[in-house]
């Protein structure tokens, strides 16, 4: 009987230990151990994160970082609060939602200057140069997803209502777009874009992308986040982590490093053929570093404020959260 209780206590302690900050629990060889939870699976969108890890940028900053894959059921902000992760990647809407619910989260860098979430279409079938061209078209939208928020904002910005377009509910695959049941289909332009373009090109079809940011809707995407406590209690760790991370991102997109970057990427994303990876990498560069003068990680504060405004208008949050205050450049 006693044994059972001892075992029980052990399990409780073990469970409790899970709630302690993961990285600071133990240090190995003097290096600080950190856990970094990504937003999505290993692919080109986390190029810089992988590069920083593989090419020794974290080690150079005396950090031992475990980079963990994300996924649809993962939420980096929740993991920060629960202590499963020390740093993470979250989209701006996640950050704003978390803030509105009182989560102690801060944003350390904005990884994507341009949101990769765009709409693919066939220019030979439909011509979309302005938002008004969407009228009477069949537009794919993931209900509940960011693309829904963005599309609503786009339509509202030109005085269009939802009745002016035909909404097609998006699932996980592109079949309806391939079968021409929808004119526009939401894709991540840097990761899915090259794959779909390649497939349609083989079928002799041309594709183009409709970019909401070109039409005034700047909805911020992936950003690096951590907890208020981390910033307050370990500012030095945060500083070293961010420096190493952003150096990794910058290095990954330097033209002279493209071969090394491809090596790293193909190690983690084995299913995508090399020529596609190359295209993905080039596409991603345009989104994270639109110009040489722009440092990766720079905050587009105006875009953040617009994102908050949009969410407020669409009643995704009840009151303003002042997201500007939690954007902290280290």
């Amino acid at each position: 009987m006693k044994k059972i209780w001892t075992g029980f206590l052990f399990v409780i302690l073990l469970t409790a230990a899970q709630f302690l900050p993961a990285g600071l629990l133990a240090a190995e060889g003097g290096k600080e151990q950190l856990t970094y939870r990504l937003k999505w699976l290993f692919n080109v969108s986390v190029m810089g994160d992988l590069y920083a890890g593989e090419m020794g940028f974290f080690e150079g900053a005396n950090l031992d970082v475990t980079v963990k894959e994300g996924g649809p059921e993962r939420d980096a902000i929740r993991e920060l609060e629960l202590g499963y992760a020390d740093f993470g990647v979250a989209s701006a809407d996640q950050v704003i939602r978390a803030l509105s619910k009182g989560s102690p989260v801060v944003v350390l860098a904005q990884l994507f200057q341009v949101n990769p979430l765009q709409w693919i279409y066939r220019p030979d079938r439909v011509e979309i140069t302005q938002v008004k061209d969407l009228k009477a078209k069949t537009v794919g939208v993931t209900f509940g997803g960011n693309d829904e928020t963005i599309m609503r904002t786009l339509l509202a910005s030109q005085g269009l209502s939802e009745g002016d377009v035909r909404i097609y509910s998006v699932r996980y695959d592109y079949t309806p777009f391939y079968r021409r049941k929808a004119d526009l289909w939401p894709v991540y332009v840097n990761s899915q874009g090259p794959i779909i373009s390649w497939k349609l090109k083989r079928a002799g079809e041309r594709v183009a992308f409709f970019d909401p940011s070109a039409h005034g809707v700047k909805f911020v995407a992936n950003s690096v986040v951590t907890s208020v406590r981390m910033v307050r209690e370990h500012p030095d760790t945060v500083k070293r982590f961010m420096q190493a991370l952003l150096q990794g991102w910058e290095a990954a997109f330097k033209p002279e490093n493209s071969k090394a970057a491809l090596e790293v990427l193909s190690k983690y994303d084995r299913d995508t053929p090399r020529p596609i990876l190359e295209k993905q990498l080039a596409m991603t560069r345009k989104l994270v570093k639109p110009a040489d003068s722009v440092d990766i990680g720079t905050f587009d504060r105006e875009a953040w404020q617009q994102t908050e405004r949009i969410m407020l208008e669409q009643q995704q949050i009840k009151a303003p959260v002042g997201v500007d205050k939690v954007l902290i450049q280290f």
Binding site: I77, R78, E81
Partner: peptide, 10 residues
């Protein structure tokens, strides 16, 4: 017990 925000547990 752990002082979690409404975002983690409503």
């Amino acid at each position: 017990l752990f002082g979690l925000s409404d975002y983690v547990i409503p």
